[in-house]
């Protein structure tokens, strides 16, 4: 049996090799920011042989806290770093690097959409959130209980939502709804549940399994189209950030430059978000 010593030898060597190789660039945070970042990481890995690990533990607040604890070199966040975050990690000099824009859509399942609910007002949304509105017929839809899948607090999507409805995420009343985490989970669960509603990054609302509602602002229905997002006519939009501790250095710097460059911005667009140029362009056109 020569195979065992051979295997041992191989294992030892590969162990040594992996020690020689530098620590990979670690990135963690929002599942919303993740798709373009993960694809950029894939490209840099194959083209420039930079080792990059992209993870989405805990969403935006996971990205902020892991950067704060110095466990990653770059964070991904779909919300601003708040004063309390900065106070929590005084050693970390958070830099926000704006890389694109996204909107939070209120998505519903097919039966609700076909039952005639196409738009909601802020008051109606607050009513659903606080449990005063429990049935879709109360807002002009079918007679069906509302299954509200609330995004977990701490997710960027939730913060943007709560900020819009209550002015400040901290003022949102505490409620107990079904909870969902990542975007895949939210879309999947809404698609497979009757009377379902959830908050989801608008680029994930495919219009086939889940449907993005318009928001009624001053009597007008405003849909989360890229134009409305860029002009901020659609109120539930938010910036997407990479976060770094101080100015990004070395490989982190190369990564940021790639993502802000032409090809990186193409990736942002490809995944359904607004690139920085679009943002300026659409806003200027108005």
């Amino acid at each position: 049996m020569k195979i065992i010593p051979t295997l041992t030898l191989l294992a030892t060597f590969s162990g040594l090799l992996s020690q020689v190789q530098a620590e990979p660039l670690k990135i963690n945070g929002s599942t919303t920011v993740n798709p373009p970042v993960a694809e950029a990481a894939e490209i840099l890995r194959s083209e420039r042989d930079i080792q990059i690990q992209v993870d989405t533990q805990g969403g935006s607040s996971g990205g902020i806290s892991m950067l704060g604890e110095d466990r990653v070199q770059l964070g991904m966040s779909s919300k601003h770093v708040s004063e309390s975050d900065r106070a929590k990690f005084p050693k970390c000099d958070f830099h926000e690097i704006h890389m694109g824009e996204d909107a939070v859509a209120l998505i519903v399942s097919k039966d609700v959409w076909q039952g005639g609910v196409k738009a909601l007002t802020k008051e109606q949304v607050a009513g659903i959130y606080e449990g005063r509105i429990k049935n879709w017929k109360q807002v002009g839809g079918p007679d069906q209980r509302i299954a509200f899948f609330n995004k977990e607090p701490g997710r960027g999507t939730w913060e943007v939502f709560a900020h819009w409805v209550y002015g400040d995420a901290k003022k949102a009343p505490q409620v107990s709804h079904l909870e969902v985490g990542g975007n895949e989970e939210a879309r999947n669960k809404v698609a497979s549940t009757r009377g379902a509603l959830s908050q989801l990054s608008s680029s994930w609302a495919d219009g086939k399994t889940v449907f993005a509602l318009s928001l009624k602002v001053d009597g007008k229905d405003i849909a989360p189209t890229s134009e409305n997002i860029a002009t901020h006519a659609y109120p539930l939009s938010r910036p997407l950030f990479l976060l770094s501790n101080g100015e990004p250095q070395g490989e982190a710097k190369a990564f940021v430059e790639f993502l802000l460059g032409e090809r990186g911005q193409e990736l942002v667009k490809k995944h359904g978000y607004l690139s920085l140029a679009q943002l300026k362009g659409e806003a200027a056109a108005k």
């Binding site: 805990g58 929590k88 909870e179 985490g181």
Partner: peptide
């Protein structure tokens, strides 16, 4: 869940 991140 992500509440552990908020709690920290």
């Amino acid at each position: 869940g992500s509440e552990t991140n908020i709690a920290y």
